[in-house]
Structure formats: C-alpha cells, structure tokens
Design a protein around this nucleic acid. Structure first.
Lengths: 319, 319
DNA sequence: ACAAAAGTGTTTGGGATACACCCATGC
DNA sequence: GCATGGGTGTATCCCAAACACTTTTGT
C-alpha cells in the first residue's frame, strides 16, 4: 500500500516531554530507542501522526504505546522543523510537554525500555531532543508564572512543603518557607483540607503499599492501576482525551479581541488571559520526605476558585 | 511529477499573523483568497512548505510572495492540527506571528488582495484563522511581559508617548503617563536620542539638560562618550533571516538545565530565561499623533543593554 | 489665545523580604 | 534527647499607584 501526492510532503511526528515529580526532584520520562536511527539512544516518546488524529491525540497514543502511561493534560511546545533534524529524511515534529505523577512505566512498541531520569542526570538524547528539552524547561518555567500547572504533579491534598519543593524543583531556586506560604495562600486558590480522618486513613493505607518502599517508585509495578482505582475511586483518571474537535468552533468574535474594554482609569498589574488544560485528579499518593518531622496541614487546589479568578484576569503568581 | 510514500502524510503549511501599529491602533495584515476554498474570504498570508526550507523560512517566503512584505522577526505560535481544519484534506498549519511597522502591501500569488485591518474591524476569516488570531493575541500579550517585543513596531527613535500608545494598544488598557515613563526607564533598556546634534554637542547638552538633574537620569552623568557614539551608531543588523541551521547545535548541556545553580539565599522575583529574536532596523517614519502638542524627547532601544540584562535573568517588565 | 500634549516630583500604602523562636514527630 | 521539619508573626523597605501644575507647540 502506498500513497501518492502531487507535491512532496514531510512526515509529521510528535514528541512528548513528560515531567514527573517524586516529592524531591524533577524527572523526565525517556525511552531507549529500539530501532535505527539513534538505536540505543534515549529519546522522548513519540511517533508518526495518523491521518485521523490530531497531534494531541497522536502524542497521547504514542505515549501509551511506548511507555504504558496514560495522561490527560498536554501543552504544546511548538513545531520543530529544521530540514536536517532527522536523518531518515524530512520530518517535522510537534512537541508537547506534560506534568504527571511518576508511575511505573514499561518499554513497548518502538521503545526497548522506558524509565524516569532525574533532570540533572539526563543522558545525551537522540535527534534534536536536547534542544527540545531545553525549550520545554523554558516553557514550563514561563507557564508556571501564569498558571497553577504544578498541581498536576501533586495529590488532591498536599502539604505546603510539598508544594514548595515542587516549585523549587521547577524553577531551580529556593524560597523562604513563610513567604512562600503567604504568597500561595494569598492567591486564593488553595483550600485547607479539614477532613483529617479521611486523610489519615488514606495515609495509613498507603503506608502499607509497596509503592512506598523505594525512592523512585521502582516497585510500583506491584501496585496495579486497578488496585489504586479501587482504593481511591476509579473515575479519577478516566479518558479525558483533549478533544480538538472544538478547535475552530466559532466561539470567537472580533469584539472579544479588543478586550478588556478600555478602562477609564489607569490599570497596572494587568495579566493576559490564558488557556491551559487543568485536569485535576490522580490517585497515587506522593512519597513523603524521608526525614521525620511534624505532620503538616494539608491543602487542596480549589479549581473553581481559580477558574473564577482567571475569568476576571485576576490570577497572578509571581516569583 | 508525483511523490509516493509508504504511509499517508498530511500537507504542512504555514500561516503568518502580522501585527502592525500605525501610532494609534493595532492592525493585522490579511490577504483576500483568490482561489478555493474560501475564495473571497480574508485569511492570513501563508502556504505550503517546501522540502528544503524550515517552517520559518516558508512563512517568510509566503509573506513576501503574497504581500510583498519582507520582515526579519518571527515567533512561532504553534501547530494547528485539527483533522478537519482544511476542507481540502489533512493540512497541518504551523502559525507564526510578527510585529512590523505597517508599510504598503500588495496582493500577489494566491492572494487577490492584501491590506491592513484595524484589530477591532477584522472580518470573518477563512479556515480556523479566527481561532489562530485569538491565540496570537493571547501569545503576544503574554510575551510582552517578558520581552521588549514592542520596539519592532516603532522607529529607531520614538517618543515615550508613542511607546505608551503601543503598549496600550497591545494590552488594551490605559496607563498613567508618569508611571509608565518611570517603569520604562527603570528597565534600563532605553536611551535618549537627539537627532540633530553631533556627539560632543549632545554630551555637553545632555549634561546641562534639566532632565539630567532628576532622579532617573542622574546616573547618566557618568555616561562615556563611547556610549553616546553607540547611541548614534545606527546598529542595523539587516537581513537576519532566522536561521534554523543552528537549531540543534549541541550548545546545550545537561548542567545548564538545572540552572540557576541553587542559590543559598531565597530568590524571589525570578524570571525564566527566554529566547526571542530582536532585529532592529527601519526607515519608515511613524505617523505622529494627529493633535498638536509639545515636541517630545526621543528614545531608542538599547539592544546591547537588553541582551546583557537578559543574560543575567535581570529583565522584567510587568504591567 | 487656546487646545493639546509633554515635562516634572511627591506621597502613600501595600506587598515583598528578611528574620527567630517554639513545637511536634521519629529515631 | 536530638535532629528534622512544621507553625507562626513582625519590622522594614521598596516600589506601584495616585495625583497636579507648568511649559511648549500648533492652530
């Protein structure tokens, strides 16, 4: 079977930079290439796009095929189109990044192996993936100023320290504990989790799961997704594939472009509007810090409140 | 002549959202489509990518062909990949945006006509270009917080009012004149320009100008003659077509990813690094405000200073 | 002369920053 | 008990924001 066109066409592929956070440091998900070119090199999961799927759907499918990972949040980095970026010929790659809680992954399909690498310990990558990774880091660091993307990586409830470690890992800086908490609470998107009992119960259960025994979830494989679903509710992660069907619905009209409608008063502190898929919910408890310490209050991300603030261009989180 | 592949491939095209600023309001450049589909509709300039060019080069070429406009700055918006976005079949579009000073444009090639539209008076567009325009506005408003992109739209020297009108047009807000000037000058990326004087005269004059006695220009007294030379050195780096050849040069190493190297002190006010092509140049006089008024001091964009600040992650411009 | 725009500085309030002590927990 | 980390409050400083009169220029 072959396909013929009047003009030459590049192949179109996707690549997916998946960031994970284990409570201590930032990680990325790589696969070891099983085929030429770059056989034996590590690379981002990804592959060629089918004709009946959007780039987003392609990225999610390939991720599933090559690593067994199912996620529901993606952000596009852009297209990488250098003429010589792939030795096989002209290949245009559309790259995405995602933030997830690290779980067990396994190689499959094109990938002979798949595993998490600490961000400080990334090997030399195939193709132009070094460059793509750099772009992904830049983009994520930029996005985090405007969007509460970090909550993708945490459980429904988390301590302020966990949240702080996450921000420090992403931005590569250190914050003062008290000031960080103040700033976070001032945004208004956090709720205190009152239900101590439920939380304790959850904690107890998790303490006895194998997942807690290793640093990098190495033994997570013993804990099947099914079990987790049983524990915490099966619909937490259900097939929320980003649907590009709505892409060019005419929900835009020219009036909304000139918004906000010129205020008469000077208006500093304006923040631009933004769209970002926030898909809450997960099921795997995050590793606790290894050192003993006082047990912290738990917080949760108030999505409704955030949506409301965003609507009014009133959300701001500057570091 | 035809081209045959083992698997089906989408066509890859580019679209270019060109913003212009005439001193009063923001405009965009559109072409009237001369062929089906969407014949007679207005759309962004763009077209199909050749096999020996990057997407950037394609966008620039198509822009030249369809509107006669030659620019040297582009920023990628991303790939638009909805399966049904083009009635001709599967077409992936890589969109860019650009900021230019509006000049005469003419239709050509596929375009039966090309002209500027005020941003508040944009007609219904072909394909998913309404959606792309919305994304471009969002992106530009976001970018302007981190990059001095606006200077692309102004002449080499400009008054503070012109700059302010530009920012107000892009962000859709109004600023207080004095606070805007203060904030802009504090960034350190602006220089004072005075056209008619030669260097020595200028230096003498500047030292005795009332402006120099004030808080913000006080340090200028230390200004070296050399700096003033640079000020008039009309550094036009022309013809800098974005070159994607350098794309995956191995200038990245894993160490730079974990940067900045964990400071011991808390570091608020961190801004992420960013890359953006700043290409100065220009000869088209900008329309002056219609109303009579006092003649304003002129400023120019100090590119070297900006690059330096950017290198240290020290540039910040928040509105 | 008048209208429109440009030049100039001060005050104030709020938020970012820096900072220290006590308490809870696990070992 | 001791090491580790959680919980809490305050003083300071700097910058964003609000604000008004004078000067220049074109008509």
């Amino acid at each position: 079977m072959s396909y013929t066109y009047e003009y030459p066409r590049p192949a179109v592929a996707t690549d997916c930079v998946v960031f994970g956070f284990d409570g201590r440091e930032l990680q990325i998900l790589l696969i070891e290439r099983g085929n030429e070119p770059y056989k034996g090199y590590w690379a981002f999961p990804g592959g060629f796009m089918n004709m009946d799927e959007s780039a987003e759907q392609c990225a999610l499918r390939e991720l599933q095929e090559e690593t067994g990972l199912t996620i529901n949040m993606l952000k596009q980095l852009g297209a990488f189109t250098d003429v010589h970026r792939d030795p096989r010929g002209r290949v245009v790659s559309i790259a995405f990044y995602a933030l997830v809680r690290p779980t067990e992954v396994k190689g499959g399909d094109d990938a002979s192996e798949a595993r998490w690498f600490a961000i400080d310990d990334v090997p030399r990558l195939a193709f132009d993936h070094d460059y793509i990774l750099r772009k992904a880091m830049q983009q994520m660091r930029k996005d985090i100023h405007f969007e509460p993307i970090g909550f993708e990586l945490l459980n429904k409830s988390f301590t302020m320290s966990e949240l702080q470690r996450l921000y420090e890992a992403i931005l590569g800086v250190r914050f003062d504990r008290r000031n960080f908490e103040k700033k976070m609470l001032q945004t208004g998107i956090l709720q205190i989790v009152e239900d101590e009992e439920n939380d304790e119960e959850l904690f107890e259960k998790l303490l006895h799961t194998p997942a807690y025994s290793t640093k990098f979830f190495g033994k997570r494989k013993e804990m099947q997704t099914k079990e987790i679903d049983e524990l915490f509710g099966a619909d937490s992660n259900k097939g929320k594939t980003p649907d590009s069907k709505t892409l060019f619905d005419p929900y835009w009209n020219s009036k909304s472009l000139s918004a906000p409608p010129a205020p008469t008063k000077p208006a500093f502190n304006f923040l631009p509007p933004e769209e970002f898929k926030i898909c809450a919910e997960g099921s795997v408890e995050m590793p606790q810090p290894r050192k003993p310490g006082r047990k912290g209050r738990k917080f949760s991300f108030n999505k409704e409140k955030y949506e409301h603030l965003k609507q009014d261009n009133n959300f701001k989180l500057e570091f």
